[in-house]
Design a binder for these strands. Structure first.
Lengths: 157, 157
DNA sequence: ATAATGTCTATTGGACCAGTCAGGTATCCA
DNA sequence: TGGATACCTGACTGGTCCAATAGACATTAT
């Protein structure tokens, strides 16, 4: 039931870029992002590249380059990002909606385990597909403000 | 968000042994189980051994040997079996109740991602910890009967 | 020009998964 | 008592994936 580091970093990156954008930073260089989240730069590169290819980010090269969101945060579903980076949400393939594959069990139609795992898949999907990047960003900023903590990415370094 | 084959086989084995027991078979040899579920015998052996050590099963050696449940199915929570075989239910360690570990993010207390993943963990745990082996067995048998399908393990082979 | 940034491809070390192999030991039946 | 059946134990292997690293190349601002 694991979210990979890759998936975790992808989400953290999108959230950070979204926060930066919300706070007036139009573009965020990868170095700043990597430092803030303590992610190895070259590993993060690959992930941002993937998010770029998938249409979530756009990049500007050269000096003062960096990444920004290509779509409004409200239209980015967390579940879709996880699916992109980590694969299907379902714990076993025979209950996946987006990547169904038959399982090896003798009678899929009368498999109590399958029904249970379908519940689990639906519970996960319900949460991750109902939450957007916008929502996560709002929650994060609200919590920061409530505790009087200065948000990150206010100033270019 | 994956259940490993090992975890899947462990659950299927417990369910099958429970079904057999419900239907009057006091003990189930591994060969019959492996054949029915199409699991490599030697792989299944390791898994049943682990379930034995963990107190879920007891075994009888020699001719007419096999495995049976050591506890009543009602007292076996699916979530605990998954934890035993596959590790924590939480998608990331910083939201695990049974195996918490701090994450690398700069501010765990104001991490929107963490709050979201905590929701996911709780949703998974709610399902897997509320369902017992008894429940899964009942559902399976009910579905089989509803469709008039003969349940497995009625006769020793 | 050059320094700062992103792009792209290749590779690596290690962990883990799923399974295999080669026996050893206990139990039962004839 | 001997053999068949079945569980017990440990080593090990091929493959895949994760996380990270390395280095050459392209683009942009100053």
């Amino acid at each position: 039931m694991n979210l990979s580091k890759r998936g975790e970093y992808a989400l953290r990156a999108l959230i950070d870029i979204g926060i930066a954008q919300e706070l007036g930073r139009e573009i965020l260089p990868i170095g700043e992002l990597a430092e803030h989240e303590r992610i190895p730069v070259k590993f993060l590169e690959q992930i941002l590249l993937q998010l770029n290819e998938a249409g979530y980010l756009e990049s500007r090269r050269g000096k003062h380059g960096g990444y920004r969101l290509r779509k409004p945060p409200r239209s980015i579903r967390i579940g879709d990002v996880v699916r992109l980076v980590d694969g299907p949400l379902a714990p076993i393939a025979c209950v996946s909606k987006t990547a169904y594959a038959p399982c090896s069990c003798p009678d899929e139609d009368h498999c109590g385990l399958r029904m249970l795992m379908l519940d689990v898949r639906n519970a996960i999907a319900k949460i991750l597909d109902r939450h957007t990047l916008q929502g996560v960003i709002e929650v994060t900023l609200r919590e920061l403000r409530r505790d009087g903590v200065k948000p990150p990415f206010l100033e270019p370094t």
